[in-house]
Amino acid sequence: HMSLTISLDDVSAGKPDPTPYREACRQLAVAPGSVVAVEDSRTGTKAARAAGLFVVGYLPSGGLLGDVDLSTNRLSSILDLFPG
């Protein structure tokens, strides 16, 4: 279930610009520091980091995404990264 989506139709600049993430936080009325972005690209991780989000890198085949807080190769394990 998605509460909203942000596309290039909604913002003036796309990733790696942080505007899409900032706009999503604004529309959801949440502080960027309380949001987790799950990203599978360097441009996405750059955008999320610049917007002030906690960044989980998702690479099912391994590899590196740059500046991430945590990483996983399974989407099903993301919630397990945040116990409690």
Rank of each mutant, 00 (worst) to 15 (best):
L75M: 11
A13L: 11
A47M: 11
F82A: 08
S34C: 11
K46T: 12
A24N: 04
L4I: 07
A48S: 07
Q27N: 08
L28W: 01
V36G: 03
S7T: 06
F54N: 02
L79S: 10
P32W: 15
L75Q: 04
G57Y: 09
V55D: 02
L28D: 00
R22A: 14
Q27I: 13
V56L: 07
L53G: 01
T19H: 06
R42K: 15
V30P: 01
T5N: 11
V38S: 03
K15W: 00
F54D: 00
N73H: 11
V55Q: 01
L4K: 05
L79F: 09
T43V: 10
V11A: 05
Y21F: 15
S77D: 12
D40K: 13
D9P: 04
E23R: 02
A48Q: 05
D9N: 07
G84T: 09
F54I: 11
T19M: 14
R22G: 06
I6Q: 06
G44A: 13
L28C: 03
L75N: 04
K15F: 00
Y58P: 00
V38F: 03
G44W: 12
R49P: 00
K46M: 12
M2N: 04
D40V: 07
V68W: 04
P32K: 15
G52V: 13
H1S: 14
G66P: 01
G57R: 10
P16I: 15
F82E: 04
L75P: 01
D10M: 04
G84P: 02
R74H: 10
L65E: 05
A13H: 02
F82G: 06
G66T: 09
S12N: 09
L59Q: 10
S41G: 07
L70H: 04
G62A: 13
S7H: 05
E39C: 07
S12Y: 07
L79Q: 09
K15P: 00
R22T: 14
L70V: 12
Y21A: 13
G84L: 08
G84A: 06
R42Q: 11
R74C: 09
D10Q: 01
S7V: 02
M2K: 04
D17A: 12
V36M: 08
S7Y: 01
T43W: 04
R42M: 14
V68Q: 07
G33A: 15
P32F: 14
P20W: 14
D69T: 10
E23H: 01
A31K: 13
S12I: 09
I78N: 03
Q27F: 08
S12C: 08
M2I: 10
T5C: 06
A51D: 03
L53P: 01
A13R: 07
V56E: 07
G33I: 14
I6T: 08
S34G: 08
R49G: 02
L8D: 03
S12M: 09
S61I: 15
L53K: 07
A31D: 00
V36K: 11
D69H: 14
S77N: 09
S12A: 13
V56M: 11
S71Y: 03
R49I: 08
K15Y: 00
